[in-house]
Simulated assay, not measured.
Amino acid sequence: MTSASDSPLVPGNGVASCGGHGTDEVLEVTQLLENHRITCCIGGASALIFYGAERVRHTWEIIVDSGQLGDAIELLKSPKYASDYLTLPAPPFQQRFSLPHTYQRFRGSSSNYDFTLVPSDHSHFSCHKSTICRSVHGLPYPKLPVLIQSFLDTNNRVALCDVVDGTNVSEDWGLQHLDLSGTNDVEWALRLNKMSTHPVPPFPTAAIKKLELWKSVVQTKIDRLGWTRPSELFTTQYRLKGSEDPWLVYSKAY
C-alpha cells in the first residue's frame, strides 16, 4: 500500500507557509526577481495589511517595474522555473482600480498560494530601491508616503481610508510627506480605462483636489469607528490606543 507521504503531490495542494499565507514562498519569488535585477514590491491588499488595515487577501500582488514586466514573466515561465510556478488564467471578474485580465497570474506547484504580476504604472508609482522598504519578514513593500501618494493620485478613497486608519497618520504628516497640490491624475485613469473590457470603467475620472481628499479622509477617522470600536479604546477602526505600528513587528501575514 502506498502511504500518503509516498503519493505524488497534486500541484498547488500543499499547505502554504506561515499558516497558509504563503509568505515564505512569495518572499522566494521576490528574491528570485531581485536576483535577476528585476525591481519589485508587494502591493494590493497585502500592502494594506502590512500597514495595519484589515483586508482579505485573495492573491499576492507583486508590483514589477513596468519596463521589466516582460522580463519577469519570461523568467518565471522559463524552463528552469516553469515547473515551480504554474501559469493561471486571468480571473473572470472585474475589480475597481484593477485590470486583472491584463495581468499574469501564477500558482506554486507544491503549495496552495498564488500571485499576480502587476505593472508599476497600474499602481501609479515608480518601483525602485528608493521607493521600497522591507517588512521584518524581508518582503519588499512600497514606502508609506509612496503608497498613500498613489491612492491620492488615483482617487482611491477606499484604500486611502484603510491605510490612514491602519497607520493613524495625522493631517500634518500628510502636509510634510505628500504632494497635495492639484488634482488626481485624470489622464492616467482615462488611459487605463481604455484597456478595460467591462462596461463600468474601473478607474474614476472625476477631478478631485488632492488636499481636500486628504483632509476629508484624515479628519474623519472617528466617524469610521462604528459601534463595535469605542473611542475610549480605539484611535481608528484598526488601531487600539497605544498599539505598535504593525509594519515594525514580525507577522506571518507579511
Results as ranks from 00 to 15, higher is better:
residue 195 M to I: 08
residue 204 P to E: 08
residue 201 P to L: 14
residue 24 D to E: 14
residue 67 G to S: 12
residue 220 T to H: 11
residue 45 A to S: 15
residue 180 L to A: 02
residue 62 I to H: 00
residue 91 P to K: 01
residue 176 Q to W: 05
residue 6 D to W: 09
residue 136 V to G: 01
residue 160 L to H: 00
residue 240 L to Y: 11
residue 74 E to W: 07
residue 211 L to D: 01
residue 161 C to Q: 10
residue 64 V to L: 09
residue 192 L to S: 02
residue 217 V to Q: 02
residue 28 E to F: 02
residue 231 S to G: 05
residue 38 I to W: 00
residue 100 P to S: 07
residue 73 I to E: 14
residue 99 L to G: 01
residue 201 P to D: 09
residue 109 S to E: 03
residue 21 H to C: 08
residue 113 Y to P: 02
residue 44 G to Q: 05
residue 120 S to H: 04
residue 177 H to F: 12
residue 224 R to T: 03
residue 83 S to I: 03
residue 149 Q to V: 09
residue 180 L to E: 02
residue 210 K to M: 12
residue 56 V to Y: 11
residue 196 S to P: 08
residue 61 E to Q: 13
residue 19 G to W: 04
residue 179 D to W: 04
residue 168 N to S: 13
residue 4 A to I: 12
residue 109 S to M: 06
residue 91 P to Q: 05
residue 231 S to Y: 06
residue 221 K to V: 06
residue 205 T to L: 07
residue 42 I to S: 03
residue 185 D to E: 13
residue 61 E to W: 02
residue 238 Y to I: 06
residue 87 T to L: 15
residue 31 Q to I: 09
residue 50 F to A: 02
residue 154 T to S: 14
residue 201 P to M: 13
residue 222 I to W: 03
residue 122 H to W: 09
residue 70 G to M: 12
residue 105 R to Y: 15
residue 195 M to G: 04
residue 191 R to M: 15
residue 11 P to Q: 05
residue 240 L to S: 07
residue 224 R to P: 08
residue 192 L to F: 15
residue 128 H to K: 13
residue 202 P to V: 09
residue 54 E to P: 00
residue 254 Y to E: 07
residue 106 F to Q: 01
residue 114 D to A: 11
residue 105 R to Q: 14
residue 101 H to T: 07
residue 232 E to G: 07
residue 72 A to N: 03
residue 19 G to F: 09
residue 40 C to W: 00
residue 127 C to I: 10
residue 202 P to G: 10
residue 144 L to R: 00
residue 43 G to H: 01
residue 206 A to C: 11
residue 115 F to A: 04
residue 54 E to A: 13
residue 37 R to P: 00
residue 71 D to I: 03
residue 38 I to T: 00
residue 66 S to I: 08
residue 78 S to V: 08
residue 87 T to I: 13
residue 10 V to Y: 07
residue 112 N to S: 15
residue 40 C to P: 02
residue 36 H to E: 11
residue 50 F to R: 00
residue 116 T to P: 00
residue 149 Q to N: 10
residue 248 L to E: 12
residue 66 S to F: 04
residue 240 L to R: 10
residue 219 Q to T: 13
residue 215 K to W: 10
residue 83 S to V: 04
residue 40 C to T: 05
residue 213 L to Y: 01
residue 230 P to D: 08
residue 5 S to K: 11
residue 93 F to M: 08
residue 119 P to G: 04
residue 77 K to F: 04
residue 102 T to K: 10
residue 83 S to R: 10
residue 254 Y to A: 10
residue 128 H to P: 02
residue 232 E to R: 06
residue 127 C to Y: 01
residue 60 W to T: 05
residue 100 P to Y: 06
residue 102 T to W: 07
residue 248 L to A: 12
residue 80 K to N: 12
residue 225 L to Q: 03
residue 2 T to W: 13
residue 24 D to N: 09
residue 97 F to I: 07
residue 240 L to D: 08
residue 96 R to G: 14
